[in-house]
Nucleic acid binder design. Structure first.
Lengths: 328, 328
DNA sequence: TGAATATCTGGAATCGATTCCACATCGACC
DNA sequence: GGTCGATGTGGAATCGATTCCAGATATTCA
């Protein structure tokens, strides 16, 4: 392997001079610079990032912890992150927890050992234990998707999205609206979206039947099952269903189709996430665009600002946009 | 920051001894070990990976170059890779080319500078320039999805998949089969799948109309457009369509639905990839399961074997499985 | 002309680990 | 009691860069 020492010898200068040429720092004569550059060219020498990191304490690597890359939200976020980070010469070190909360904690340590310059968490849970650990890290951290005090975060206004979407149903004349949610330990998707729905229903004085509220996990099948429960157990059938993700909504539609319930005439339905497939199901699914790539880019900007000790915002709440489609 | 020196001082031993405790190597007395372990516990010390890498020349990082993580194939592969690699303490450094061939080359260099222990390419093109560059790298490389001489690769038998699928249509009584493919510079998806289709048609003596052969890119819309061309330009309408990816097939189905063409009675259709959504479209889409996660795992195993100078296979061809569904 | 400043260069320390080598003990065995 | 192997330990070199400092020239200005 070619090292700075080899370059120095072949160019007939000291390592210091080679380093100066490399970093465009200090004084180097035109003559020496030319020689060094020529040798570098000839040998194809590239300085070792590791040696450099050891000395400078900068790795130009950002650790990204996520629950999965197999759904659209995180993969879009990572795309946005990657795009912005690579502009500044940073790379992403990936840590996939596979929805395992234990691993989320482990990776926090692991990435620290790897001496990443910063970390981005695409978070699903906001347990105090995790937040505590994050706060104790002396590395810049940005959380995406969940709100948390004392931690820099990029989120969406899940509460108002849910209120807006519920109101949209109501404006279309619906009074009996069902809800397919997820576990409330996911504060953004589980708790806030549910609260927005409840509050909007309450604001209009519409009662909510217990059987209208069902819970799934983050996959299509559980949306199917949730809708099955709604349709078979409700005393009074709802005329609309608000699902907190597109996949849940698509599962629900799949149940409806199988049982001859017409969308949107017999049952209106909407999801959240603007998944690619949402416009190709029949009828096209009403949803909410969260611009996840932008979230990734914003998070990248904040963390880079933090690293370079520039000003950064502790909290960014991004815009959203209802996409009206024929399922409602 | 706590370093090995601090631990040595606080435990009243030399750095060598601390290192021995850390690596379970050489002789260390029970007494010294206890003291060192106690201090490590107290201080929360973790050795610097960078210093270690500098000395040992191992980084325990694998670079992964991919065209996008926003489609299921690469994200599943990465999941499989990550799962296997993390078992052995390796991490993934992500390099997303965003389908840019220039970047593919750049990242090859960049990851080398980062001194990754190995690289995995989820490849789309097999241009000689790229292959040449890969061969010159003195780092273990595994390519997934494309075949190439002199480069370790994990692939599927795209040619026989295409023949099997075409034969499946034929066995169902179809003679007029259309084909939606992609650019042939993608040898696996573009060239081999097309060749399999052609050869199987020829083997049965079935003619192929020029208008039946359409080309899209890797998205749903272009499947829609391809089907539009097939339906509007063909002299003789086909009774079946073989799309080389599920997304193309779904786009095609979307066109058919819009224009009242019944699937599968008026037009049978099948894709490849076993995307999650394929079973939720109406009717469920026949497709081929490629077990991409397994491909990722296999690639990880090969590269680890290579790194640890164990025997590894130059070429792995994985199994596939037709998933019969009602779209045919 | 001499002092002050600017330009250039190399030596040596440093970052935080690993690892080789030399040396010190210790018990076992003949 | 001396030799031998096993056990235990620390010193010093090393990995490949950066960076501080001191010294050598060259240039400018009064």
């Amino acid at each position: 392997m070619v090292t700075i020492k080899d370059i120095a010898e072949r160019a007939g200068v000291s390592r210091s001079t080679v380093s100066r040429v490399l970093n465009h720092s200090g004084y180097v004569s035109e003559d020496a610079r030319k020689r060094v550059e020529k040798v570098i060219e000839e040998t194809g020498y590239v300085p070792s990032e590791y040696a450099k990191s050891l000395r400078t304490k900068k790795t130009k690597v950002i650790g990204v912890i996520l629950p999965t890359i197999q759904t659209e939200t995180p993969s879009r976020i990572v795309t946005g992150l990657g795009r912005e980070l690579s502009k500044h010469g940073y790379q992403i070190l990936l840590a996939n927890t596979d929805h395992d909360k234990e691993k989320e904690m482990e990776y926090l340590d692991l990435l620290k050992v790897r001496q990443v310059d910063g970390m981005v968490l695409i978070a699903t849970n906001t347990e105090p234990e995790l937040l505590q650990k994050m706060k104790k890290m002396d590395i810049p951290i940005v959380m995406i998707g969940q709100e948390a005090e004392d931690i820099v975060h990029v989120t969406y206004d899940d509460y108002h999205v849910a209120r807006d979407l519920t109101r949209y149903f109501i404006n279309k004349g619906h009074k009996k609206i069902a809800f397919i949610g997820v576990d409330e330990t996911d504060r953004a998707v589980g708790y806030l979206r549910k609260k927005g729905y409840y509050d909007e229903m309450a604001a209009h004085g519409f009662p909510v039947e217990e059987e209208w509220i069902q819970q799934g996990i983050f996959d299509i099948d559980s949306g199917y099952e949730a809708m099955e429960k709604i349709m078979t157990r409700s005393q009074v059938l709802p005329t609309a269903t608000f699902a907190v993700t597109d996949r849940l909504a698509i599962g629900a539609m799949s149940y409806l189709k199988k049982h001859g319930v017409k969308v949107p005439t017999d049952m209106a339905i909407a999801g959240i996430g603007a998944s690619e497939i949402s416009q190709y199901v029949d009828p096209p699914l009403m949803t909410v665009d969260y611009q996840n790539e932008k979230a990734g880019e914003e998070a990248a900007k904040q963390i880079l600002a933090h690293i370079n000790s520039k000003v950064f915002q502790k909290k960014i709440v991004l815009d959203y946009r209802l996409i009206e489609r024929n399922s409602v």
